[in-house]
């Protein structure tokens, strides 16, 4: 996978929990233009362990001198966001991937309905730039817990005016999905990014109201859950690798020097899919990619988020 070496050019504390990082290229070249909704995967070295997290790019896609991401501090995670918050300083070097878009706007939509919850606002910030440039018909509905959590809402309001509708929970604001989704003109596409329950509620509501699947778009990155240690055997390269409790299968393979494919590292895109040969235990699927039937069949696994409760898992790689 090709990478871009970047330097941290600025760090801004946006809210108590959210920091905004500005990256510039080490080689001084412009970044590639990207499409709204894209993310990059940031590699960080946490005490000798390489962790890679995906973050949405939130700058204007046409501005190529810097890339911008925002990171919400997650205390209960495996340390990636905490590392970004506590250890990273202006001038530090990092590696990021080229932008990848798994949350693209449907350009033929007659109307775009964007629904953000909390830090889920970030992919929409680059999408807004695309929508404005193409003079598209859209609304952004942004829900957050309290005024101090509404990162970027002032900035967005200044850019797009009354196309932004905010819902502040502490002030009694409620985003009624059923009301919102039942009055949209034919040809509308809906996009949601936010906490898991909000994403699920939006998808279920849209389906109940008869929205076709291809008009419903969501982005949800799952952080790889920890679990018990197990061993994997790679049949093509004849390697045996132990996956420790706090590492994903993909990370353990990378740590062992295996060049395994990936794109989103969040169980969404399907790029890292591996064929399962056999296991003496059970697969623990955590991805959003495989169908329930495929998960039950046990022939495929997404090593970026899924693991196994077993002694040995044999996969083709």
């Amino acid at each position: 996978m090709s990478h871009i070496n970047v330097k941290v050019a600025a760090i801004e504390q946006v809210t108590d929990l959210i920091k905004h990082f500005t990256f510039v290229r080490e080689d001084g070249q412009p970044f590639p233009v990207f499409s709204g909704g894209s993310h990059v995967v940031v590699s960080m070295n946490i005490n000798g362990r390489i962790q890679r997290n995906a973050y949405s790019l939130m700058g204007n896609p046409e501005e190529t001198e810097a890339y911008h991401i925002s990171v919400r501090r997650q205390e209960k995670s495996r340390g990636g966001s905490v590392h970004m918050h506590d250890a990273l300083k202006v001038g530090d070097s990092l590696q990021i991937t080229f932008p990848v878009n798994l949350f693209a706007l449907e350009k033929r939509a007659r109307k775009h309905l964007l629904i953000a919850g909390g830090i889920g606002i970030t992919p929409f910030m680059s999408q807004i730039a695309d929508l404005e440039r193409n003079k598209a018909n859209y609304e952004l509905h942004y829900a957050y817990r309290a005024p101090e959590h509404g990162a970027f809402s002032k900035e967005i309001k200044a850019n797009i005016g009354n196309k932004l509708i905010t819902y502040v929970e502490s002030e009694g604001g409620v985003l009624n999905l059923r009301n919102l989704l039942s009055k949209q003109p034919l040809g509308t596409h809906v996009y949601v990014c936010g906490p898991g329950p909000m994403v699920v509620a939006m998808i279920e509501t849209a389906r109940t109201l008869g929205w076709p699947e291809n008009h419903i778009h969501s982005e949800q990155f799952t952080a790889p859950p920890s679990g018990e240690s197990f061993k994997i055997k790679l049949t093509k390269s004849a390697l045996e690798i132990v996956v420790p409790p706090e590492m994903s299968m993909l990370e353990a393979m990378e740590a062992a020097g295996v060049d395994a494919p990936y794109l989103c590292r969040g169980g969404a895109c399907g790029r890292c899919e591996l064929e399962v040969v056999c296991t003496d235990g059970n697969l623990l699927h955590h991805d959003h990619y495989l169908s329930e039937a495929e998960k039950a069949a046990g022939k495929k696994i997404m090593p970026c988020v899924s693991r196994a409760k077993c002694d040995l898992l044999e996969v083709v790689l």
Partner: peptide, 8 residues
């Protein structure tokens, strides 16, 4: 169609 809503 002009007045039709999503879910038609």
């Amino acid at each position: 169609l002009p007045e039709a809503l999503m879910g038609l």
